[in-house]
Each structure stands twice: as C-alpha cells, then as structure tokens.
Design a protein around this nucleic acid. Structure first.
Lengths: 195, 195
DNA sequence: AAGGCAAAGTTCACAGTGTCAACATTGGGT
DNA sequence: ACCCAATGTTGACACTGTGAACTTTGCCTT
C-alpha cells in the first residue's frame, strides 16, 4: 500500500490489477476503459503502458488473478467438505464465484481477451482443469489417470460452466427463485444422480 | 435485393442485418463497429439510426435472427433423425451452430447485448427453451409437464451450452482432436449414458 | 557526496468510435 | 402537380486505445 512520490506511484502494477477488478465489479456489462481505470488510480492513461504492453495484456492480468481466486475458493470449499461431497462443493464454488464476479468471470473466459500467447494465463487455466479432474476422480473413487475420468471431467466442467453462463445471462431470470438457486439445484441434482 | 435510388437504399434494415451477420462471421473477436458496417453497406453511419434506435438495438436484431437460425437448424436435425435420437441431434445441432457462428453465438448470449426491454429477443429465446424442453420430454418418454422434465431440461441445456462456450473459448484446443469433435464426444457420452 | 542513467510518469497527437442536431433528397398519397 | 414524411447526409462532440517525445526521480557507481 506504500505510495511513492507524487510523481512516481510506487506499485502501480498491483494497484491497477486491484482497482481493475473493483472497476469490473461495478460495471455490470463488463467492459472497462483503460483511461477510466487510470483516472481512478490517479495516473495518466499512458502510464499503464510502462507495466502492460497494451489493454489486452492488462485484461489478461486481471483474468489470471481471477483464476487464482477461483481456484482458491474451490480449494477452501473442497477442504471444508466431507469426502465424497468434494466435487459438488467445488462445482457450487464455481457457480458462486461466477455469481459474485460476473464481469470477471466473463473476462476469464469469453472473447474480449486474446488469450493467444499469454503464458501465465494458460498456465493458471490448465491448473484449474487439473484440480477439477482430480476432484472428479476422487468422487468416482478412481485413479486420476483411469479411463473415463477425462470424459467425465469434461462433462462436469461443461455442465457447471454452462449453468454459470446461463445464470449470468439472465436465462434463469424469468423463474421465481433466484438464478443462483436455480443453477445450484440443477447442479446438485446432476451430481447426486449419475452424471 | 432491389436497390432504390442512389440516395435511398431501398431495404436498408434487412441489408444491415444480413451484412451484419456476415461481418460478425469475419471478425472472430466478435465486436463490430457501426461505422464499419455502414461503410460495407455503402451508407453513412447515421443512416442506421433511421432503422435502429442505437447500436444495441441493431445487435439485438442480429441476435434475434441468430436465434431463428439456430432453432431452424435444430428443427431440421430433429426431423431428420429417428425418434429417440432427437435430443442428441438437437444438441449436436446446437454445438455445430456455435462452432460455425462463434461471434453470433456469443452475441446471442453474452453481455455485449443489453437484452433488457427487447421484446422480440426474449420471445425467440423463450421459444428456443420450449423446443428443447419438448425434446427432453420426448427422449424420456414423458409428458412435457411431467415432474422432473424441467430440471432435466436445465441440465441438458447447461451441458450443451457450457460445452459450446468452452469449445469456442479454446479450452479444448490443447487436445489433439478438433475442439468440435471433443465437444460432440462429450455430449454423445452424456446422452447415451443416463443424464 | 556527486553525477548520471534508466525506470516510471506526463503531455501532445492521431485515428477511430457511438451518437446528436441540422440539413438534403426523395417517392407516394392527396 | 404538390407537399410531406420517410430516408440519407454532413458536421460536430466526447470518448477511446495507442505511439512519440519530453520530464521527473530513485538508485548505483565512482
């Protein structure tokens, strides 16, 4: 939190990421402008170019931070659950993350970002998939490399991810309950029944 | 295709939708500019304002046309399949639509569009859901209003929708096969096995 | 301690965007 | 034949992402 001189900000890069996520949380539509973020931080738009190659790189950093937080949330959920319920809890954590950070979630996936060539981003995303796969394997009592685990992981991921998107896009809105509740119910039913 | 005078275009509204979808197909990232579209059609940017309240309304019209085409494609797929395979074919049609029209697909769902208050758009989207529900009911040999059909529809929709998004976002790209093939396989497995 | 250099911010500039207000050109109905 | 409403155009404005040139400052070397 240390501030440098009036001229030199001190730790602009981290501040931009922090405030960028905050700004993303306010604008529901999810597109933020570089200049707006710079103004909020109290710095010129071009100052950001000392820390990120361009807007896309900045957004990629936000997304990477998002993946880290998502994985952290899932980790907590799994640890706090009795074994056998881990997969369900991880899925619910995924849904709740999307619900609480809709714009960030859409940035992490979604086409705004050009993921091509961003090494860190692909790394955290891959780690996220491996974590899910191990949860799926554990839920079925299988080895992580066993046949069928990969496919089951894909189906689970697809379901959770799809429910997240439909929820955020307001496709559950016309129903009585809260969209989050609808998605949670659908996920629970799927996990309890055979997937 | 009739052209009016040099000054009056003739049927600008339909042309904008047509060329808008074409333009969307070219720009993979999926955001098109009003002025670019107007230039392509051979008309001033402000001319579009005679037919659409603003850019959002234009995009909504594109999305609505997209929903119509999606539903048409699903209808064909279901009719051309033997009964019992209808649901799977409908889902595969959904996947292939997303694969062939990624930008349009993301526009139809996704936050670029402000769906609030666009009556036509919510209507076609609701029709799409009803069609899916009847396919789910038929696949399980149940009445459309039977208990559990709604939930099963949600799960199916979620899975297909999620696979579509993950596929488009390149999350299956690191695998050997084509992303479309990966998604189709996952869907087929889910439908064959109990969902 | 003095000096200088590279890192980190700033200002200026430019092309492109969505949209508003005012003006121009038409074709169809009285 | 006329006129008016529908349909286009021009000009303008605020805003965006980004490049080039300039300024300030903290740290490292002597």
């Amino acid at each position: 939190m240390e501030r440098g001189s009036a001229y030199h900000h001190g730790n602009l890069r981290e501040t931009l990421i922090e405030e960028g996520i905050a700004l993303l949380a306010e604008r529901a539509d999810g597109d933020i402008s570089l200049r707006q973020l710079a103004r909020r931080v109290g710095v010129t738009a071009n100052a950001t170019y000392r820390h990120f190659a361009n807007k896309n790189a900045l957004l990629a950093a936000l997304a990477a931070e998002g993946f880290r937080r998502l994985q952290e949330g899932q980790g907590e959920a799994v640890r706090g659950a009795d074994p056998g319920q881990g997969l369900r809890e991880a899925g619910l954590a995924y849904l709740r993350f999307a619900w609480r950070h809709p714009a960030l979630f859409r940035l992490m996936f979604g086409p705004t970002l050009n993921r091509q060539g961003d090494e860190e981003l692909t790394r955290v995303a891959a780690a996220s998939f491996r974590a899910l796969r191990s949860a799926v394997a554990a839920a079925h009592g299988l080895d992580e490399e066993a046949a069928g685990v990969e496919g089951a992981t894909l189906r689970t991921w697809g379901l959770v991810h799809g429910l997240s998107h439909l929820m955020l896009d307001g496709q559950f809105g016309w129903r009585a309950e809260s969209p989050l509740a609808v998605a949670e119910q659908a996920l629970t039913d799927a996990v309890d029944g055979p997937l």
